[in-house]
Amino acid sequence: MAAVVERVEGRGCVLRGNDIDTDRIIPARFLRCVTFDGLGEHAFEDDREQAKGDHALDQEQFAGARILIVGENFGCGSSREHAPQSLMRAGFGAFVGQSFAEIFAGNCTALGLPCVTLEPGDLATLMDSVELDPEQSLVLDLTARTISSRAGTMAAGVRDGTRMALLEGTWNATAVLLEAGDDIEQTGTRLPYVAGFPG
């Protein structure tokens, strides 16, 4: 059983912009590896280089942040788990945004990292609040489905299944899937193509 994820608490980092894709989160050249070790330092490497120290991940006020606050369709593009792996290794334990690409969100869940959504108005308020006061601590409470900050407590959207998997510590799906036992073989061999289309 994996660890239970009920709350993530810590400072926020505001990364503005929509449709931030996985090639930007972790450029493909860093996928030339057989482990995920060391990916943390390369998160957003090309964007950061072009921003010359101005990128959210390089701004001093956000150093040590636990919660990454993003815009719409964050993590679109490839299925590379290297993207959430690099952000996790860069210190992030949760993502708050307007919306997330599906495979990215699924990869996050598989790592025990919640992706929660806010209404656009709330998101704008939270972003402003964290930028004005980056020292404040945010609390993402999955049980209550809220995110609290100096700007108040906001309703956080999270899919029921994801929330349950995190709250019950079943986000490492392998263990859960194995519980089906022989039912897996039975479902498989019932499929005509697995059985070889017998006459």
């Binding site: 490839s78 299925s79 959430p84 699924g106 598989a110 790592l111 899919r159 799906a173 899937l177 498989g188």
Partner: peptide, 19 residues
């Protein structure tokens, strides 16, 4: 399309947890 942890799930169980 799936991520690496899900590749592990499929290798180990030939299954995925999907909504």
């Amino acid at each position: 399309g799936i991520g690496t942890s899900q590749v592990r799930d499929v290798l180990a169980t030939q299954c995925l947890a999907m909504a």
